[in-house]
Computed example of a mutant assay.
Amino acid sequence: MAKAPGRAASAVRLFDAHCHLQDPRISAVAPSLIRAATDSGVARFAVNGTSEKDWHLVKQMGQEHPAVVPCFGLHPWWVPERSPDWMDSLRQFLSETPEAAVGESVMQIGLDKGSHGKTIDFGEQVEVFQRQLELAKELEKPVSVHCVRAFGDLLEILKRTGPFPSGVLLHSYLGSAEMVLGLANLGCYFSLSGFLTGMKSTKAKKMLKAIPLDRILLETDAPDALPKLDNVSLVTVPVDTSDADTEKCDIDSTSPAISSSNESLNHPSNIHIVLSYVASLLEMPEAELAELSYKNASKLFSYPGSKVHL
């Protein structure tokens, strides 16, 4: 079904609509990951900050790599750790980086009733989420939203606080097909990642068929969301979790299917695997889906071009 990414895949251009290349597990090798993915045809990377602790890293990455679209926000997992002046800090990063999107974590923004094993007050999450939505509307920035087990709450909040001048990206969308229309009518885009491979294929196909073609995006969510498919050669980033200083791991990130006895992380080149899988479910040529998703992402992120108001 899916093919291994490589230089032959550079005939298409792709926009990774959501990833975390500043993640401490891979930040030390991020430049080589970007080079390898760029060589395979990935033209843009929306790199999402998750908290005040990494916003400066995302900003720096955007300055050093023209292909990186820096995004800033407070992810729901890090809501309890925010400082009293986090909104002022966020506003400052956005004003100093005019091309930036408001990130999923903030805002990523997001809502998460799973909370990654943490106990995070959902009411507090909603408060932070709404404040970031309001900031996005004020600054006319798109928002990239992390949502886990809270799509009903999300839909109600978006209905109550919309419309949104520059669009809403639902990253790693795994919601139901039935919710797609209501979310699309509010200006939402739907980004698909390797997590989709964990959904039952019949359910995934039904959901994908419900998404308007002008609202489909592709992403890796690297270093997470490693696709789980049989008979597919992935590009992975091994991390020796027994080594406390994982940021200094020495790897050849351009070599496909690197194995590790500990942890293997997702490489941004694997967006080709996502492309192939989604195209197969949609029964669409990969090149057509690649170009369609690239144009959709460029429109949403206004990269390049003027903003499109929804």
Rank of each mutant, 00 (worst) to 15 (best):
A150I: 06
Q125V: 08
V143R: 00
E138L: 07
S166Y: 03
Q108P: 05
K137Q: 10
E138P: 00
M179S: 10
C147V: 13
A150M: 10
L158Q: 00
L154E: 03
V148L: 11
F151E: 05
I120Y: 04
V180N: 01
L135C: 02
G110L: 06
P165W: 05
K137N: 07
I157E: 02
E134L: 07
V128R: 00
C147T: 07
V180D: 03
G175L: 12
F151G: 02
F122V: 07
S105R: 02
G110Y: 06
L133C: 05
A184G: 12
T161L: 15
E140T: 14
L139I: 04
Q130G: 08
L133V: 03
L133K: 04
E156A: 14
G114R: 10
L174M: 09
E104I: 05
F122P: 00
F151L: 04
V143C: 13
L169K: 06
L111F: 07
A100R: 00
G117Q: 14
A100Y: 01
V126M: 12
G162S: 09
H146W: 05
G175I: 12
Q130S: 13
L135P: 00
G114K: 07
R149W: 03
F164V: 10
E178R: 15
A177G: 09
H116N: 15
D121F: 13
A150C: 03
L154R: 02
N185R: 11
S105N: 14
R131Y: 14
V148Y: 08
T119N: 09
R160G: 14
E140D: 15
L174V: 10
I157L: 13
K137L: 11
K137A: 07
R160T: 12
P142Y: 02
K118S: 05
R149L: 15
G114A: 15
A177L: 12
V145L: 14
A136N: 07
S144Y: 04
A100Q: 01
E134S: 11
L158P: 00
L154T: 01
A100N: 01
A100E: 00
C147P: 07
G123F: 11
